[in-house]
């Protein structure tokens, strides 16, 4: 064959580029996107995947070609050319990755900001201005590595950051749910109705805020279809704020090792249409709390031993009034 190497290289470059771009768009690697955050995360992932696929095939291709083309011929005991380096080339392959990661950083920052990541604990809308001031001060002192330094609720001092209000979003969320992780279940409390459940019910298209904490050990609240995850930390409250965009039922998965039944610590989130949601709310108000709580996270076959149910019993035994739950959220650091 007499095709010049430059042409071959060019063709290979074009092929890899097209392949990466195509894979970046048509990979189907992520589950369906059911929250308003998901689209941003997905496009970020797709972009990073395209770049990664390109670089992967570049390096891989060079290695495979080298293995074929430059392998030692039988009987050839000589050395290769004594090339020690090439400064322009080295500058090039320092600069290109640098530009790429800076680009990815900026893009990630942008998406993160859109998700509300930069403003996680903005409860200012809930509070009177004076309270905000106090909060700012206490929190500025708290500074440090852990607490979010921008704002906090003085009634619940131990806030840690999650994903908060989107830029420009000043109103409080339409729906707030308190989420409590415990070995090995999630308990959802709806301050609006005072009801408690083991599954999460939220309306589609409305701004939802989850205030997440844990009772015993670390857990992590994860809904893959929302692309949202947040650790539940005993003694602290973290927040996730989002809008569910697709009605349906999605898994809630515990993503932080929390003990032997960690794998079984799963439940569901129901994203209701507005009518369904209204209906569900009515049944809640009508039927009280206990029945629903029993239904939480039905343990699958082998899990029904007493040990698994123990925490439920404990949870059931106590007063599930919103005040009580509220105290549990804020107060476990003082026990």
């Amino acid at each position: 064959m007499n095709i010049p190497t430059t042409i071959l290289t060019l063709l290979a470059g074009i092929t890899i580029t097209l392949l990466s771009l195509w894979l970046g768009q048509n990979n189907n690697l992520l589950p369906i996107a059911a929250s308003d955050n998901a689209a941003g995360v997905d496009s970020l992932f797709n972009a990073m995947l395209a770049i990664s696929v390109g670089l992967f095939f570049l390096v891989q291709g060079l290695i495979v070609i080298a293995a074929i083309k430059f392998r030692q011929q039988p009987g050839d005991e000589s050395d290769g050319p004594p090339i020690h380096g090439n400064i322009p080339l080295e500058i090039l392959w320092t600069a290109i990755p640098a530009v790429l990661v800076l680009g990815i950083s900026v893009y990630s920052f942008e998406i993160y900001n859109q998700m509300g990541g930069l403003d996680p604990m903005d409860h200012s809308a809930h509070m009177k201005p004076a309270a905000v001031q106090v909060a700012m001060q206490t929190d500025a002192m708290a500074g440090g590595l852990l607490a979010d330094g921008t704002s906090a609720d003085p009634n619940r001092p131990n806030f840690a950051a999650g994903v908060g209000a989107k830029p420009g979003q000043m109103d409080p969320a339409d729906v707030t749910v308190n989420v409590m992780g415990l070995q090995y279940a999630w308990i959802f409390t709806y301050p609006e109705t005072g009801s408690v459940s083991g599954e999460l019910h939220i309306p589609v298209g409305q701004d939802v805020e989850l205030d997440i904490t844990a009772q015993d050990v670390l857990h992590a609240f994860w809904v893959p279809q929302f692309r949202l995850k947040q650790d539940a930390i005993p003694g602290k409250t973290t927040q996730l704020r989002f809008v569910a965009t697709q009605p349906g039922t999605y898994p809630i998965v515990c993503a932080e090792l929390c003990g032997s039944y960690h794998g079984g610590m799963r439940t569901q989130v129901f994203v209701h249409t507005p009518e369904e949601y209204e209906q569900w709310k009515q049944t809640q108000i009508a039927s009280g709390i206990e029945t629903e709580a029993i239904a939480m996270a039905p343990p699958s076959d082998s899990q029904s031993d007493g040990e698994f149910l123990e925490p439920f019993a404990e949870a059931m035994a106590m007063d599930m009034s919103p005040e009580m739950m509220h105290q549990m959220h804020a107060g476990s650091s003082h026990s």
Partner: peptide, 9 residues
């Protein structure tokens, strides 16, 4: 220690 001081409630 400093972090405990900064964040402890």
């Amino acid at each position: 220690y400093l972090t405990f001081r900064a964040v402890s409630t």
